[in-house]
């Protein structure tokens, strides 16, 4: 697979990822389009530009690792992994089917490229910390990336893990919050407010940046700054749009966990340039 820093090339990859996300969720007739689409640029930047990884790396090789703590974003992760060559693209169309290698939420033992099993919210950051601590013991300073949802940070375990990363000075930890401001039942601020996000993470001892989570340039430079921070874990708070890229899905909680039907898929793909 080819890596690139070229923004228009990354944007084209993102467009293709969005198409596959929508197609696979439509074929599965269930799944989570909203929070998959909001995280596309973050994952495309990581897998096609920033991360040291390769489908040919073995489990024991030094490599950067990614943990999708918001496991319901599995479709975007699977689409990216397929495009990187971890498994054939055809497998995407088996998402959520009985005995598929692509479970409804990431399951490391069955899916090549998935490092950590997630799905129950709040558990990914602790596991990412464990990977970072193992890396330290192995004298491996590879980066551990972790993507959380904003609603997910309502889980208490996230804050236990936030303390741990800070206490153990996990400078190799780079975490993102996909701050699309929506969760299943509505706006995060109405369900259970989490602001001020940046101040909270700073108070927990993290190096914090706030960026536009759909801007490849901003994501790239934030990751570089985060990697340069060696003493503290880094949090990149990404302002994102739930359902990004499909006009009728944007900013609607309804599209958290609803699959597009055939008409909706056709409309959505047309917006993404599919004739």
């Amino acid at each position: 697979m080819k890596k690139t820093d070229n923004v228009s090339e990354l944007a084209e990859i993102a467009r293709q990822i969005r198409i596959n996300v929508l197609k696979m969720i439509h074929l599965a007739a269930s799944g989570h389009p909203g929070g998959s689409l909001s995280a596309v640029e973050i994952l495309v930047s990581l897998y096609f530009s920033k991360m040291n990884h390769s489908p040919s790396h073995s489990k024991t090789d030094k490599r950067d690792k990614f943990v999708l703590s918001k496991g319901h974003g599995a479709p975007v992760l699977y689409s990216v992994l397929a495009k990187c060559g971890y498994f054939p693209e055809e497998e995407l169309w088996t998402l959520r089917k009985f005995n598929s290698t692509l479970s409804g939420h990431p399951y490391a033992p069955s899916t090549p490229g998935v490092e950590i099993t997630t799905g129950s919210l709040g558990q990914g950051l602790s596991q990412a910390n464990g990977l970072a601590l193992a890396g330290r013991l192995n004298k491996d300073d590879s980066i551990v990336y972790c993507l959380m949802g904003d609603g997910e940070t309502q889980e208490g375990q996230i804050w236990e893990a936030a303390m741990t990363a800070s206490h153990y000075k996990l400078g190799t930890m780079v975490a993102f919050i996909d701050n699309n401001e929506l969760q299943i039942d509505g706006f995060v601020r109405d369900i259970m407010g989490i602001e001020p996000i940046a101040k909270k993470w700073e108070a927990f001892g993290w190096h914090v940046q706030e960026i536009d989570g759909h801007d490849f340039g901003a994501i790239s430079s934030a990751i570089e700054k985060a990697k340069a921070e060696k003493e503290r874990p880094s949090l990149i708070k990404c302002r994102t749009v739930k359902g990004k890229g499909v006009s009728f899905m944007e900013n609607l909680a309804k599209w958290h966990g609803t699959a597009p039907n055939a008409d909706e898929l056709k409309k959505a793909l047309a917006e993404l340039g599919v004739a």
Partner: peptide, 24 residues
């Protein structure tokens, strides 16, 4: 090689899982 996690059992189990994924 010892990690005191404080009074945080959920985080301890998750961190242990991550350490195992890292070969420990």
């Amino acid at each position: 090689r010892f990690f005191n996690m404080g009074v945080a059992e959920q985080d301890m189990m998750g961190t242990a899982a991550g350490l195992a994924a890292g070969g420990k």
